[in-house]
């Protein structure tokens, strides 16, 4: 049995050399497994393959940037943001800092809504509109005479907690969140298409009124205005739930995980096959590459959020 092996092996090689399909199969399988003779990694882990992956990533990025300009609204950011939660988290941060809580003022909420609608209508994302209209103009236009006022903006966020956390992490927005100068706040959570992407804009307007009475008259609140409750706030400003046709953040995560997962599988095959067949390659450490890829995946999953604040 043992003596006949070399002959059988030679015969098999001879047959294999004469069979073009076997050669094709041999070539194809080495896209996925290391080459014992050349002592190289699988072809899909070669320099040429990596250049292909880079090109694919650039194409994906290009499509994400160009597609919304060609077909506006097809790509977007899923969101589930509620004014009620924004108020809760804002006041929570203020209480943690030993400050008084803010009450909702419907006039400020109306000004915030006008600002969000203006941004969608004119296609800008800034505190000052292209015509030079400032946040204070929206507040004054609603009849809110303030001694102090401020504005925080957010877009592309998935949930309310992330919005407030993002403001809290940014020094200038945190200053607004934790300012003792403000007594009142108004939120607007408005859905629309901005720069071709379907998204949700969040506008938070802070204020301290010089004279609260005229505001109550303007919004036709009864003579003895009661403080606005959380449920009242929900009635005034509808919660925003956006389910776009294609969620950009999810698409990017799925693509990143598909590519990363594919490379991880190839590296695991490389590790197993090389050990099994005793292939010693002059290459980098597969284990190190695996650790690096896993850290990259975890980073994408836990640390990257699509939202932006201004």
């Amino acid at each position: 049995m043992l003596a006949s092996l070399p002959y059988r092996h030679e015969k098999a090689i001879q047959n294999w050399r004469e069979d073009p399909r076997a050669i094709q199969k041999f070539k194809f399988i080495h896209h996925f497994i290391p080459h014992a003779y050349h002592k190289t990694r699988a072809q899909l882990l070669s320099t040429r393959a990596f250049l292909g992956y880079f090109l694919a990533l650039f194409l994906v990025l290009g499509s994400i940037k160009l597609l919304p300009k060609v077909i506006p609204g097809i790509l977007g950011y899923a969101s589930n943001i509620f004014s009620r939660d924004l108020l809760t988290f804002t006041n929570q941060k203020r209480q943690e800092a030993g400050l008084h809580t803010l009450t909702v003022n419907p006039v400020l909420a109306a000004a915030a809504k006008k600002k969000a609608e203006d941004m969608f209508e004119k296609g800008y994302w800034a505190h000052v509109s292209p015509e030079g209209v400032e946040p204070w103009d929206f507040i004054l236009a609603e009849g809110y005479d303030y001694s102090y006022a401020g504005e925080n903006l957010a877009k592309n966020f998935n949930d309310s907690k992330d919005v407030v956390d993002a403001w809290y992490k940014s020094p200038s927005h945190k200053e607004n969140l934790l300012s003792a100068n403000y007594d009142e706040v108004g939120f607007a959570v408005v859905n629309g298409v901005l720069d071709g992407y379907e998204t949700t804009l969040v506008v938070q307007m802070f204020g301290k009124s010089r004279n609260p009475k005229p505001i109550a008259t303007r919004v036709e609140v009864p003579e003895t205005p009661a403080p606005v409750t959380v449920s009242a706030l929900e009635e005034q400003v509808a919660p925003a739930q956006v389910v776009p046709k294609v969620d950009v953040a999810m698409v990017v995560k799925v693509l990143a995980f598909s590519l990363g997962g594919f490379l991880t599988v190839l590296l695991l095959i490389d590790l197993w096959y090389s050990k099994k067949h005793g292939i010693i390659k002059l290459s980098g450490h597969t284990l190190a590459h695996l650790v690096f890829l896993v850290v990259t995946f975890v980073s994408i999953w836990v640390a990257l959020v699509p939202g932006r604040v201004l």
């Binding site: 990596f50 990017v252 990259t296």
Partner: peptide, 26 residues
Amino acid sequence: LNKKIVTEYILFGILAFLIISTALSV
């Protein structure tokens, strides 16, 4: 150390950076 190994680490480094940058750009 050889040229092939240097290239391999650089390629993995660039790939991870591009994946993260793509995720950050949206």
